[in-house]
């Protein structure tokens, strides 16, 4: 039930932000569209753990801040490699995935892909390891120290 609540609240905020015109008729239309989407979502049975309000916490904000910092750093590294292509050392490596939940694993794999210089090419179906294509030697070292994986584990908090 609280999944529907989170979805409805998110949709209302989205509608208010995108509309910008606040008149009674439009409010009614907005409420109707939110109701329609919630009903369709229920019919499609696509509501899952990612709509759990418990996944939203202050830890997410801290993690995003850290991730943006990492993205900027690796962007500078890749930009230098573009200007001097002799620096690139493309490698395929396997990294262990230690997250407990599917959410955590997907967050980890997506974070690896988001930082330029590393792309997840494959995630094992049982979710315990991933194959990563890395552009630079530094990125390989970074993955082996598992700094990002530990951050995502911290983000997961207590295992459910």
């Amino acid at each position: 039930m609280r999944y529907y609540f989170t979805l409805a609240v998110t949709l209302v905020i989205l509608w208010l932000g995108l509309s910008g015109v606040y008149k009674p008729l439009l409010f009614a239309l907005g409420a109707a569209s939110v109701a329609l989407v919630v009903w369709l979502t229920e019919r499609m049975e696509v509501l899952g753990a990612e709509h759990d309000p418990a996944t939203l916490s202050w830890r997410l904000l801290v993690y995003w801040g850290w991730l943006v910092g990492q993205v900027i750093l690796s962007n500078i590294a890749v930009a230098r490699a573009v200007l001097d292509p002799r620096r690139i050392q493309p490698t395929l490596i396997q990294v262990p995935v230690r997250q407990q939940t599917n959410m955590g694993r997907v967050t980890y794999a997506n974070s690896i892909t988001l930082t330029p210089g590393t792309v997840t090419t494959w995630l094992a179906s049982n979710g315990d390891r991933a194959q990563v294509h890395a552009l630079l030697a530094d990125a390989v070292e970074g993955l082996e120290t598992d700094a990002m994986g530990q951050r995502v584990q911290w983000l997961e908090g207590k295992p459910r």
Binding site: N75, P90, L114, P116, V119, L135
Partner: peptide, 14 residues
């Protein structure tokens, strides 16, 4: 392809 993907990542993130 894979290295180009990394370069594309630069334009898609920062």
């Amino acid at each position: 392809v894979y290295t180009r993907l990394h370069a594309g990542g630069v334009t898609d993130t920062i």
